[in-house]
Write a protein that binds this DNA or RNA. Structure first.
Lengths: 238, 238
DNA sequence: CACGATGGTAAGTAAGCACTTACTTTGGTG
DNA sequence: CACCAAAGTAAGTGCTTACTTACCATCGTG
């Protein structure tokens, strides 16, 4: 039963009386951290109280029960703090129909976001596994919107003859797959980056390259001379 | 004497005295199912006992404690049942250097496997989040090996001039990302397949297409061979 | 056919859980 | 500077949990 023992005390002064709203926010932040580390069921209200430097009763003064505390987190995370709008992020490139800039911009933005807020990814995963409603909310309010706006852009560029005819949803799935899976590796499976250590800039660039152009040269399978074996220059470039 | 009604009894006769090994295996299977649904902390030994049709004491006769039961699952899943060797799966295509067959075969195999055993994916995710050692074991015994053997193949084909020069690990990351993320969508985020409903065969084909050729028509600095585009525009598979 | 090994159980126990009650500080203001 | 609302707590409550104990039932064999 591996359980990291350190209880991070996010509060500033050890034992000071706080204004109600302040303390509420602090408890909330502590709870975000703990829930993302151990999940909803794996986190006790006692732990949250201790890490916040107050008694358990204070937690229940601010939040009617554990479930409501969880919901408050979801509201806080999904609505207020992280109003990331991917469409606006690449609005310029969309107008110019600069395909490379669209995809690379999206990828880079997403990767940077995941890196700066790994807690959210864990929270979301726990939610999905535990069957909490954050999953559905996030799906409807974010994922679906991305599929729609990116799908529309792809359809438009297909009409322009710039893209091959293929269900845009498949392309979106493939591209988002590269990005999410890369972030998941960095945050969850391989945080030490033993398999692949690459900057977000480079990752975004190469993923876009692959999406747009593939990585086959189109040449048939025949042996070739080993002339220019240049290094890739992309490994371990952090 | 009337027997109490049993809950989900996965084993054959409703209430029969079983041989020790049989019962042990049955409890293990029930536990796999429950742990994958609710995680380690979210599953109680009482639930496991009830779903197995025995009393809680029997669970603890076969497994010293809950943790050991969990470890037994990991051994069972990782060692015995899951002897999938991706390298052997596409051995033929590897020899022939049939790139399309290599990647499409791997993708299809993985997607089919994930579909047939969604429990394992959930178990693995829970393990990663809860910090259990299954994660490391799976990483070392499977993930790392895939990166190595696929990376080697890519390097070889780069020497042949068939592939663009790019760190093979990035290509592997991108391709596995498409596959895993697609499976994760089907099993976890969007089991009703509202965003994308596509057969594994088709998914494998299109992901391979994107990886090898990209989906942009305006390929810079690549006049391309014979018939221009390959079998892309076939169909929208929705 | 008895008898011991093994499959199985009912009824615990102590610790831990979410949540409550009844009470004590403390700081800003009328 | 007294006062009271709000910040804070100690010590519960009843329920659930992982795990145990002490006992019963049934089968295969000598």
């Amino acid at each position: 039963m591996p359980r990291p023992e350190r209880l991070i005390d996010l509060a500033a002064p050890a034992s000071a009386r706080m204004a109600g709203d302040e303390r509420k926010l602090q408890i909330l932040r502590v709870a975000v951290s703990l829930f993302s580390q151990r999940g909803f069921r794996g986190t006790t209200t006692k732990e949250i109280a201790q890490a916040s430097g107050v008694s358990e009763a204070m937690v229940f003064r601010h939040f009617a029960n554990k479930e409501e505390l969880y919901n408050a987190i979801l509201d806080h995370k999904a609505c207020s703090g992280d109003a990331v709008d991917p469409e606006r992020m690449v609005a310029d490139a969309l107008k110019k129909k600069d395909d490379r800039a669209v995809f690379e911009g999206l990828a880079f933005g997403a990767l940077e976001h995941h890196e700066s807020d790994p807690e959210f990814q864990r929270l979301l995963l726990y939610s999905a596994l535990e069957g909490h409603e954050l999953t559905e909310m996030f799906f409807e309010k974010f994922v679906r919107r991305v599929y729609e706006f990116l799908g529309n852009y792809i359809r438009e560029r297909q009409r322009d003859g710039a893209f091959v005819k293929i269900d845009p949803a498949i392309v979106v799935r493939a591209f988002i797959g590269m990005i999410i899976h890369h972030s998941l590796n960095n945050n969850l499976w391989d945080p030490k980056r033993r398999l692949l250590n690459i900057s977000n800039k480079n990752a975004a660039k190469h993923f876009t390259d692959i999406l747009l152009n593939g990585f086959s040269t189109g040449r048939p399978a025949k042996p070739k001379s080993k002339t220019g074996r240049r290094s890739y220059g992309s490994r371990n470039t952090r």
